[in-house]
């Protein structure tokens, strides 16, 4: 009875994950078209800077201005790689190295 319940539960979970990825894929496909048009602004421009400008305040260049050609892309790439590495490193520590051993692992059974 319990195993049937858990099977139904896992099927439901799989469907939810599938629906999520399907929606995400559709979203990304739409986004590609959107980026190609080059008209889509971030809310910093479309809301924050727009209203600030209307009230006489304008954004100024940052102290270290990396928004020059492809430099910003490079900085984002470097930041993303560093962030991704740190994320993966600590994830491994938490989920593999420091995770409590299961009874199977204690007995030396693999798989």
């Amino acid at each position: 009875m319990r195993s049937q319940k858990s099977r139904v539960g896992s099927q439901k979970r799989r469907r939810i994950i599938f629906a999520f990825f399907l929606l995400f894929t559709i979203h990304c496909s739409l986004c590609t078209a959107v980026f190609a048009s080059g008209k889509w602004q971030g809310v910093d421009e479309s809301v924050v800077e727009k209203y600030a400008k209307e009230h006489g305040r304008e954004a100024v260049a940052p102290l270290i201005n990396t928004d020059r050609g492809d430099l910003l892309l490079f900085v984002f790439l470097a930041a993303g790689a560093a962030g991704g590495f740190v994320c993966g490193y600590y994830w491994r520590i938490l989920m593999v190295e420091k995770a409590p051993k299961t009874k199977k692992e204690d007995r030396g059974i693999s798989g």
């Binding site: 910093d44 800077e49 100024v60």
Partner: peptide
């Protein structure tokens, strides 16, 4: 990898 599309309040606002 993209331009900065941020919600943070920009410098000088």
């Amino acid at each position: 990898v993209s331009n900065a599309y941020a919600m943070h309040i920009s410098e000088g606002i």
